[in-house]
Amino acid sequence: MESIISTRGLTKKYNSFTSVNKLSINIKRGTIYGFLGPNGAGKSTTMKMLLGLTKPTSGKFRIDGKKMPEDRIEILREIGSFIESPSYYPNLTGRENLDIIRSILGLKKKDVEEVLELVGLSEFGDRLVKKYSLGMKQRLGLAGALIGKPPILILDEPTNGLDPAGIHEIRNLIKRLPKMYDCTIMISSHLLSEIELIADDIGILNHGRLLFEGSMEELKRTAKAQGIKDDNLEEMFLSMVNVDNYERMQRAVL
């Protein structure tokens, strides 16, 4: 299947600290790609590089055949994104915030109502965002990413701050999106339990390095081969991370 996002040797260094280390990933069109890793693994930094928020130190990537920064505007026109925490104008209502995004994307007025409905914020649309709860801000951030049905969605831990019911609701929504909107989703999380319920493919990142990339089935096969029960993928994930951490420590000692 054709890759809609592909990176080659993508690296980001902050002085002597390497946040993302020669990352090469492939995200297939029309799939949900779970980007997994412990806190500080480099997931957000990778997503920021894909969106042009952070300049890579080295390496390259293509999104739907286009390159950053040359095709920045064209790339961003195709991507709906939600990075780390929701971004909003606190002086505006939820509806007004989405209307700003709608104006920039040149969408119709009804798109705002549609997306408010989709994330369950319709009745709070006229409330100032500074009076929103964290969960409501999170939903607004998600609405800002979904508005206009973009062909690519980049979502960085979108269920942070949501209550269990909200997590369930948003997870189900994300799962339905590729069929509803014919889109590709890259979603990050530090919980495999969260990702395994929705993702087709996953990439596991630790200290900026890609430890595994493949389908859920391949991950299960790998787990089985290593003697880990395939119904306990969380253990598989932790084991991969721990082995990598151990090897890093060994290298550091040497």
Binding site: L53, R72, I79, S81, I83, P86, S87, G144
Partner: peptide, 18 residues
């Protein structure tokens, strides 16, 4: 300050706008 207080500027930088 309205751009920074809710990190709205971050959203502006990832929208197709100059």
């Amino acid at each position: 300050s309205m751009e920074y207080s809710g990190a709205a500027i971050k959203k502006m930088y990832i929208l197709p706008i100059s």
